[in-house]
Nucleic acid binder design. Structure first.
Lengths: 348, 348
DNA sequence: CTGAAAGCGCTTACAG
DNA sequence: CTGAAAGCGCTTACAG
């Protein structure tokens, strides 16, 4: 790490002014082929890297990097979406002096998602962060943004797009495998129940993939054919014990374990108590208050954390880095499948 | 986030020059009480925060932050210590333009630790990162550094010092509790074995605390008195099956699970094979190559990761932040007790 | 097509 | 005790 050369030495070596060097470095045009080549040669030979601190001092105060964030309303899903936002605010705070400006937009359904998308695209933003709950609408936003060369970072859920996009999310299928491993370790042979929430929008992609992973794991270990897996899709906002299927399965003493593919595992323990069900471990997702209480009371065995704050933090940090240094390396983030038990809870 | 005021506006509001403002801000002295107070009032009123980017452009090129790192030789412990170093190098790379310089020192035993300590303290360093394997020696380094107002950050192991220090490490007792939870979930009642490595230096603090945590957990769940825990302290570099205690216990069919308090869990599966032991789950520490192979082959059930790279990265980032912004918030880091199974392995 | 100059906000050496 | 000026490395508006 020798005294790293700066733009000034590049200029001297190429026998031009620093202004011309900068023009080449930023493809601002208006430089003759011959001098351009000379400069590029020197840049290459010296391994010049711009001083990001100096660059940002200059740029940060002149023009901020503007990022638009479009996430679900906080009313949705126990305020889960406040957590990524918290992470994004933290990142923004850290990048304050580097020049960043985040504008938040919120959606509740595909229509609002689309109208917010339009609003974001008509204003000038350097980058967009959003959540692809609605595949066709997300794809449309992605395509339009692409035409304008505005990068889009998707959080939480992976969907298939026409072109490769930036995703910061947990591998839901893998999370399902892990859940299978954990529950099978506690339960062994017997009947497993997968509990999905189905709301008006149908089953979320993540939930589907989690179930698939879970079933794949159990299938692989089911050598003696003594493992059975039943899926229950229950409608949100309906008491669990009112649903015949659920009641029947929970009362069945062969039932050995339950995998809740969403963040509402905490709904089970009261039902268990009501039916006198004991020793049926539950594996669920997300560290909401209710789930954490259940974990502490050992009514839930394992929770899987998606690290929502970390997702948001990374999205902003990574996008900023991409926009200022053309480095996209931090925009493909596989969120670890973080396993949480009662004993390692408080540190998250 | 209004146009944050800078030192220039502070100077104008306090009717002094920016030089004087800076003198007050940095306690450089030579300012009359009255102007000092006037400036401090304005600073307070406006909520001025220095622009770290500008500050670092200026300082980063003039005087680098110099950090000394004293860690175990890489030959020790399967090159575990290359990992924190890797994290530190990554942090240094990110802070390159901000002006940082890391010098590495290595130790193998208390004597070398002491002589390196002396060397570090006689040179001028702004901060020190080290690993407190040897309590009295570490305490001495800590005290000497404290006299010189040089902050010390300890990695890996928590020890008790005369004054509160900065530690970036996993709570070993908590990790033991987690191990207890995991192994008990797989095993239930029966005989548990705790395997410690004892080398010339005796049992490491971390191993002791892990065992304590493990025993505490099993004790708490041992309501019917059907759980027994045996500890084996075996000398490093001796074949496991050659030790009578180990052989006896492993052959005992009541043995249900083994907790290896160090990073050598991979030594067990070959012994198991030799004695025809099956279905005895193993929980161990650290993601070294051998352990990961065993995890993949399902010969180890769970590994606990101490995130060594992350420890190193955080130490440098946190120390740099403390040295440049007097913000010590990132120097107390509780490393999560990260639970790793076969299915969530590859993402780490 | 190219250069010289101003300035981002902070820090410090120098002059008074 | 205080101020004016130079400069960190980069970027850009302006002049030629």
């Amino acid at each position: 790490m020798k005294e790293s050369i700066g733009i000034k030495q590049i200029a001297k070596l190429a026998e031009v002014s620093i202004g011309t060097v900068d023009r080449v470095l930023h493809n601002r045009g208006g430089v003759s082929k011959i001098t351009e080549q000379r400069i590029l040669d020197v840049v290459k030979k010296t391994g010049y890297k711009k001083n990001t601190v100096a660059s940002r001092l200059r740029l940060g105060t002149h023009k901020k990097v503007k990022i638009a964030v479009l996430i679900p309303e906080a009313t949705d899903n126990w305020g889960y979406w406040e957590l990524p936002k918290k992470g994004m605010d933290k990142a923004a705070e850290e990048l304050k002096d580097h020049g960043i400006e985040i504008t938040y937009f919120y959606f509740s359904d595909p229509l609002v998602f689309m109208s917010m998308s339009r609003k974001m695209l008509s204003t000038h933003f350097d980058g967009i962060v959003t959540v692809p709950f609605f595949t066709p609408e997300s794809d449309r936003l992605f395509r339009k943004a692409r035409e304008k060369k505005v990068p889009v970072v998707f959080l939480d859920t992976r969907i298939t797009l026409g072109h490769p996009g930036y995703f910061i999310c947990q591998d839901a299928h893998q999370a399902g495998l892990v859940a299978g491993r954990l529950l099978h370790g506690l339960v062994g042979e017997g009947v497993y129940i997968v509990l999905n929430i189905v709301n008006a929008k149908g089953l979320h992609e993540n939930n589907r993939q989690r179930e698939n992973g879970f079933r794949e794991f159990l299938n692989a270990v089911n050598r003696k054919g003594k493992i059975e897996v039943y899926t229950i899709n229950y409608p949100l906002n309906q008491p669990l014990e009112a649903i015949p299927d659920v009641a029947k399965l929970l009362k069945d003493e062969r039932s050995k374990g339950v995998f809740v593919t969403n963040s509402r595992a905490y709904m089970l323990p009261p039902v268990f108590r009501r039916y006198g069900v004991t020793d049926v471990p539950v594996v669920g997702f997300d560290l909401n208050k209710e789930n954490m209480e259940c974990l502490k009371r050992e009514e839930i065995a394992f929770l899987i954390n998606q690290k929502p704050e970390y997702q948001g933090y990374n999205a902003i940090k990574g996008l900023f880095k991409f926009l200022t240094e053309e480095d996209a390396s931090e925009l493909h983030v596989d969120i670890p499948v973080e396993i949480v038990v009662k004993e390692n809870l408080h540190i998250f």
